[in-house]
Design a binder for these strands. Structure first.
Lengths: 145, 145
DNA sequence: ATAATTGCAAATTGTTTGCCCAGGG
DNA sequence: CCCTGGGCAAACAATTTGCAATTAT
């Protein structure tokens, strides 16, 4: 479950932003994405809804959403451009299938609890975290680089 | 515990690389760093050991080390340049003090075990993972390291 | 109306590459 | 000596910004 298109629009309006056609297009793309797209992909999809939209506009819109806290930036792959995901209502972490690039969401409460514990052990309060598991399918017996 | 300067030098020699003065400087910087420096920092430190070293040389050397598997790249902060760390002998994860930027290493075997379990639950084999905890001091900042 | 926003192109930033010379094994 | 590798500057790629024209409220 992720934030709806309406809640993203609300967020923009509350921040005093105008709901232009291009902004609507980007928000729609983001709200419907199930695959953690990068800017290039978001741009391509937004172009289908709003032909002629500029890439700079997409960058600006995405960055604003991130600042507003409605969008999360991920760095799943070193050296590649960041991926984006509308902040989910219920938290989850990610599993990256290195064979296909597919990204799977999961949540393991036991891990979440342990993270809080570790932070406390060092005298801190856990504010946020990133956990990404890089995996390969079990049936294949791929390399062990 | 991390790989020693000597083991890094060995790694380069075995790969057929020359141990030039500038390479020695970068390796020394990396072997001695305790703070996950970025390229700019590595460059600055290497300059003190080997004045006149070019930034391109630092990039080349660092990238080669990463390819050889002797150096790890981290993306602790979205939008900032990557940080580097000599591959540690024993695995650990990281805790980022958001107040100071300090990076603390930790290892929680229970979390490690659960990660393998989660991967299997989805039909995968865990190849690698990234876990970063973003934290703030509870009250008074205790010492670590 | 009027303040925000767009598209474009130019500017930045971070990183890589081509080239020709220098130094390590 | 040969070949890797260094410095420099130009090339690149990704992202940001300035600006005049445009659009939402």
């Amino acid at each position: 479950m992720r934030a709806s298109l309406e809640s993203l629009q609300d967020m923009c309006l509350k921040a005093g932003h105008t709901l232009t056609l291009q902004r609507r297009a980007v928000l729609e793309v983001l709200a419907e994405a199930r695959d953690h797209p990068d800017i290039e992909t978001i741009y391509a999809r937004a172009t289908r809804i709003m032909p002629g939209i500029g890439k700079a506009t997409v960058y600006r819109c995405v960055n604003r959403l991130v600042e507003l806290g409605g969008l999360q930036q991920h760095n799943f792959h070193d050296g590649e451009s960041p991926r984006y995901e509308v902040v989910p209502v219920e938290h989850h972490d990610h599993l990256v299938n290195m064979q296909t690039g597919e990204i799977i969401e999961f949540c393991e409460p036991a891990i979440e609890r342990l993270q809080v514990e570790v932070a406390q052990r060092y005298g801190f309060r856990l504010v946020d975290h990133r956990l990404v598991l890089y995996v390969t399918p079990l049936q294949n017996a791929p390399d062990t680089q």
